[in-house]
């Protein structure tokens, strides 16, 4: 098994504004969002980060995709350090998360071409790739409609397509099926399996057990910013369903803390 991505002791602390302190109902000035998370993803597998709301999944993925810097630790992505050479990492990965938006004013077609150009994709390659992806996700009919006028699901599909204009070998998707209807969600999971079949390495975060059971070869369970378990999905499940196993682990951890 070829190691493609390795997260080493990631730690991230956020300073809370007074507004956030109220929302989180805490007097603490700091929030440790991720605390010592390590894991490895291997070539051609789908790795899942499973955890409840606020566990630190998105924060971990944002550190991997170089949007934010870890306070401690580093991520080695296909030989490049996310901390020391972030631009190298950015060229190698495709990152999808709900907070990355596309400009409402433009059309899917324009945005696709814009990001292709920034990734230095050859125009011929770009056109054939765009045709295939747009058709697959039904964007072709809306290619010239302003993004502002697209449905939420269509926008999300477009974001997904735009995140992989450069055909990256490492794909990082944060809750890729969130907010999608069952048909579209199915199209996305099928697509992830296709990408895996092409030999790409995929990291997804989710709180949906069935998704992990269905597509993830290995899974890391994050609770309260810490990686509680990490291993092959079947090994972690044992003789239980993933949901039952998760609640067992959750009780152990949160019970420990209190």
């Amino acid at each position: 098994m070829n190691e493609v991505l390795r997260a080493e002791g990631l730690k991230k602390t956020f300073r809370l504004s007074s507004k956030q302190q109220k929302i989180e109902r805490t007097k603490k000035r700091k929030k440790i969002a991720v605390n010592g998370v390590s894991f490895t993803a291997y070539e051609g597998e789908i790795f899942g980060l499973l955890g409840p709301n606020g566990a630190g999944k998105t924060t971990t993925l944002r550190m991997i995709s170089t949007l934010i810097r870890p306070d401690k630790g580093d991520i080695i992505v296909a030989g490049s350090s996310a901390v020391k050479e972030p631009w190298e990492v950015r060229a190698k990965i495709g990152f999808l998360t709900s907070e990355l938006k596309l400009e409402d004013f433009f059309t899917p077609n324009y945005m696709y071409d814009f990001f292709s150009a920034l990734h230095g994709v050859d125009e011929k390659v770009r056109d054939s790739r765009k045709k295939r992806l747009f058709e697959k996700f039904g964007i072709d009919k809306f290619a010239e409609v302003k993004i502002a006028n697209l449905s939420t699901g269509m926008k999300q599909k477009l974001s997904l397509v735009v995140s992989i204009v450069h055909d990256p070998s490492i794909i990082i998707f944060d809750e890729p099926t969130n907010g999608l209807d069952v048909i579209t969600a199915r199209a996305v999971t099928d697509f992830l399996l296709e990408l895996k079949a092409e030999g790409k390495t995929i990291i997804v975060s989710t709180h949906i057990f069935s998704l992990v059971e269905k597509i993830c070869d290995r899974v890391g369970i994050i609770i309260g910013g810490e990686m509680i378990r990490c291993g092959r999905t079947v090994d972690i499940m044992g003789d239980l369903s993933l949901e039952d196993r998760f609640f067992e682990i959750y009780r152990e951890t949160v019970g420990d803390a209190e």
């Binding site: 949007l67 631009w87 060229a91 907070e99 990355l100 596309l102 400009e103 990001f115």
Partner: peptide, 17 residues
Amino acid sequence: GEKERGTIATLLVTPVK
């Protein structure tokens, strides 16, 4: 505006300097 609407983040994950 781009910051407020979250579109600059999309630009920042590309390898553009």
